[in-house]
Amino acid sequence: MKKLTLFAFLLVLLSLVVTGCRQSTPSQDTGAFKVGMVFDVGGKGDKSFNDSAYRGLLRIADDFEIEHTEFEPGQDADRETGLRKLAQAGFDVIIGVGFLFSDSMRSVAVDYPDARFACVDFDARPNEQLPDNLAGLIFREEEGSFLVGVIAGLKSATGRLGFIGGMDVPLIHRFEAGYIAGARYANPAVSVTVGYAGSTPQAFADPAKGKELALLQYGRGVDVIYHASGNTGIGVIEAARETGNLAIGVDSNQNYMAPGYVLTSMVKRVDNAVYAVILSALENRFEGGVQELGLAEDGVGYAVDDYNSELMTEAMIETVETVRAKIIAGEIDVPRD
C-alpha cells in the first residue's frame, strides 16, 4: 500500500514537471476585454442554437482583442452561480444563451451594475423594465418561419407538411404559427401535422425522439418537416435522409448536414445578435432593455447555399423574396401563436 501510494505520488510529481511549465489558466487581470458565455441545455455542439451563439462570439474574438470563456451549467443552481462568478471575475460582457437564464440574469444584473449582461431568447414579462446593464434579445422567429413555410408549401408534392418542435412552450409555438401561416399562404390546401418532443428542456436534446417523430410523419405521407427542436432536430434530418424526404433546419444553417435532404434552414442570426451586443459594449454604447430582431433587422432569415441550390428553384426564391419584402413592409400580418 505504501509503495503504491509512493509510486502514484511520484507519477503525479513527474507529470507536474512535464506539464508544469504550461500555463493553462487565463490570467484574471490582464485588463483585456472579457466576454463570458453560458450555454443552454443541449449545449455547445448542438449544430443549432447554441453553436450559432458561439460562432458570433468566435467571430468577434477574431476581429477584436477579446478574452473569452464559456461553460455549460451542470446543475440548475449553477446557472446563477456561474453568471455571478463571471461577474466577480471582472468579465465585461456576460451572455446567457437561452430563456432559462432569464430569471438568473435579472437578479445577477442588478448585483453587478458594472458588467453588461445579455440574454438570448429572453423570457420577458409584459411591460417589463430591465436594468440598464441587461439586454433581453428576442427574435421574431415567426417571420423567418413564415418564409420557410412558404418554401415548404411551394415544394411539397403531397400537400402534407410536418412540424416538429422541441419543448412545448410559447417560444416554439411562434415557429409553428409562422410556419403554418406561411405554408397556407403559398398553398391554402396544405395540411400540417404537428408534433412536440416533450415538455421539458430535455426535449431539445433528444435526437432519438426527433427521429422517431419524423419517421412517423414521413410514414403518413408528409414530405417536408420543419423542426424547431435544437439538438433533437439532428434526428429529424437523419430521418429525412433515410426516407428520401425533406427536412428544414433551424437556428443555424443546417443545409450541409444532409445535402439534398435539407430543403432550407430558418436561420436565427443569434451569431449576429451576439456579435452586435458585444460590439456595442466594446464601443461603450451598450443599451439595456428588450430588443426584438426580425426580418427587417436581419435577425431571422432562410438559407440558400451550395447544399440546397438544387432543391430551391429560381421561381421559389423569387416568391419568397416578394413575401419577405411584404412582411418587412407590414403588408403581411404574421401570427405569433
Binding site: S24, T25, P26, Q28, G36, T69, F71, E72, P73, G74, D78, T81, G82, K85, L86, A89
Partner: peptide, 12 residues
C-alpha cells in the same frame, strides 16, 4: 467543478 469549468481549459 464549476470554477474549473469556468476558469481552466479542462473540459467539463
Amino acid at each position: 467543478a464549476l470554477e474549473v469549468d469556468l476558469f481552466t481549459n479542462v473540459p467539463r
